[in-house]
Write a protein that binds this DNA or RNA. Structure first.
Lengths: 337, 337
DNA sequence: GTGAAAGCGCTAACAT
DNA sequence: ATGTTAGCGCTTTCAC
């Protein structure tokens, strides 16, 4: 067990195997024209010395890294974790490895800067392409493959995976309206994201369709964090004429609403119907109704898209829509009363 | 928005700013001795060109990467996610960035090989040190800083973060014994891990202390996955003289036990007491009693240890013990009857 | 089938 | 204060 030995290089292998570095390199890269005799010798030396290729050096020359990067907000964010699971699954089925970068809290300043930095770093340094979850920046001055999940509203430029956000919000609203609710509060998400826009539009259109005029006071603004779910719910429930139902535009905010309802002694769903988009956190155990989207699938699909891009394969669409799905976990006994 | 331009190098910056590459490099690395005039010129060129430094090239020369690697099992594994949150928090407070590598399913073959490969890759290529969660391999032929979380039993060689596994198991057993249980089943974890050993020893010692002789049939072997929780519970409950309580050596396996109990129509905890180590998954919503350990804290602490190692700081202990904590979420009405 | 040598983009002496 | 130059470890022509 040699201790402080310096890192083993291809030179060391070459020397010990009494061949040139180029021959070792050939073996390392599975080139055909190496005598199987030398091949085996080299292989055994590699094993002996415990040599592993220095990725940095390799990628510097060959420009092929077999690595994809995943850039996402702070992983305290459950959505990101779900995505990561899906990405991981696709990676396991591929020849690529995964590098994960987190940009820190969504609300922290400097996020956009981080994101830009990481994208550049990853693409021109060590990875062949990147997946960005809920990005901040809209453009990246690089031409390496990028796929985003839950992209910016303003950015139709590059491939992305979306949920059927509009339809999902409509489904949620139609459910609530069907129960007889007339005053339905809404807590919005990060305004710059497409998902947030589409969900809000679903909310508004559903009201219009039902012939209910929009009351701006019933819309609280949030950013997809539990904290804004709490503050949104407090704001809405403090109204003179509070809503009988609250549609939180994601699951984390729905949890915030749930907390506030508990504190105020409101029973769910009898005193207050709560519905959330996405289904990740504890909400499923608490019986909140949700619009599910198959988040880990989004990661899976995005990864497959990215790999195709990297390999230069063509594929039909630049965007992919995941179906959402209304799940009623709890029904209301005296709704709209 | 120039499209297919090849990647911008330090040379391009130097040329455009009419200085040498070394001057650019100095600016990039915040060296003092650059005229603030040239400094600004260079900075603005960098901005213009959208230049970012090629990490691979840099790390190849400087051997300083400001990156720590986290190597862990497939992230479907909830323990790993918790750890990652803690690591991420420590990273956010530091000058380092985080690279995450997953080695795939614990049960898949080739894991040890992957792990070795990643450790080498990460340490000699792109990161300054690594954290390994629940490792497979016991030794690594590199001398870069390594910290492990939930390490192998056989490996006192390098720094690690443990839970107070023995004490936790004792606490759990004393609780069950205190309820009057005489036949307590046990489902073991991945045998090669220290945590598994210590927990099992706690189980055995607690029985001995209570004067109950060990019945080997009451020990089912598992590997910390829900599947083995299921199979273990099936095995134990199929005994002629089945246990009245089951101590699953982690939370995921406790969930497996819970599932089996449900299927068999056993009420928890009245028909069967179930206790699990760790507290991560749904078990907390289902009222299972658990021995909590503050898993994300383990990630946090491990990261801080690693950073100290990287910076060459000395610190007292090579290992760190996280306290565990028995949480009774559900009490039993007719236990031991 | 194998070796020599150039060079990827960068940093760190060593010059000036 | 700035430029010149020698590599870091690897892959890849181009020889032989």
């Amino acid at each position: 067990m040699p201790k402080k030995k310096r890192t083993v290089t291809i030179q060391d292998v070459a020397k010990k195997a009494k061949v040139s570095v180029s021959t070792v390199s050939r073996v390392l890269n599975g080139k055909a024209d190496v005598a199987s005799d030398t091949q085996h010798r080299i292989l055994s030396v590699i094993d002996d010395l415990g040599y592993t290729t220095n990725l940095a050096a390799r990628s510097m020359r060959s420009h092929k890294k077999n690595l994809v990067g995943l850039i996402m907000p702070d992983i305290a964010y459950p959505f990101a974790i779900e995505v990561m699971k899906g990405v991981n699954r696709a990676i396991a089925e591929s020849e690529f490895d995964l590098l994960v970068y987190t940009t820190g809290d969504v609300r922290k300043s400097g996020r956009a800067w981080h994101e830009q930095k990481y994208v550049s770093l990853l693409t021109n340094s060590i990875s062949d392409g990147v997946i960005i979850v809920a990005p901040v920046a809209g453009e990246f001055n690089i031409d390496a493959p990028i796929v985003s999940i839950d992209p910016l509203a303003s950015n139709p430029n590059f491939p992305a995976v979306h949920a059927t956000n509009y339809q999902g919000a409509m489904d949620a609203m139609e459910y609530l309206l069907g129960l007889g609710h007339k005053r339905i509060g809404y807590i919005s998400g990060r305004a710059e994201l497409e998902s947030s826009n589409r969900r809000l539009k679903g909310y508004k259109d559903a009201l219009k369709k039902a012939g209910i005029s929009l009351d701006e006071k019933l819309i609280a603004s949030g950013d997809y964090t539990t904290e804004t779910g709490v503050s949104g719910a407090q704001q809405l429930l403090a109204l003179k004429n509070p809503p009988t139902a609250i549609f939180a535009s994601n699951d984390q905010m729905a949890m915030g609403v749930y907390q506030v309802a508990q504190e105020m002694g409101l029973r769910i769903p009898d005193d207050l119907s709560v519905i959330g988009f996405d289904n990740i956190t504890e909400s499923k155990y608490l019986g909140l109704t949700t619009v599910d989207q198959f988040i880990s699938e989004m990661g899976y699909v995005a990864t497959q898209m990215l790999i195709k891009l990297i390999n230069g394969e063509k594929f039909e669409s630049q965007t992919y829509k995941m179906q959402t799905h209304l799940v009623i976990r709890n029904s209301c006994r005296n709704c709209g009363s």
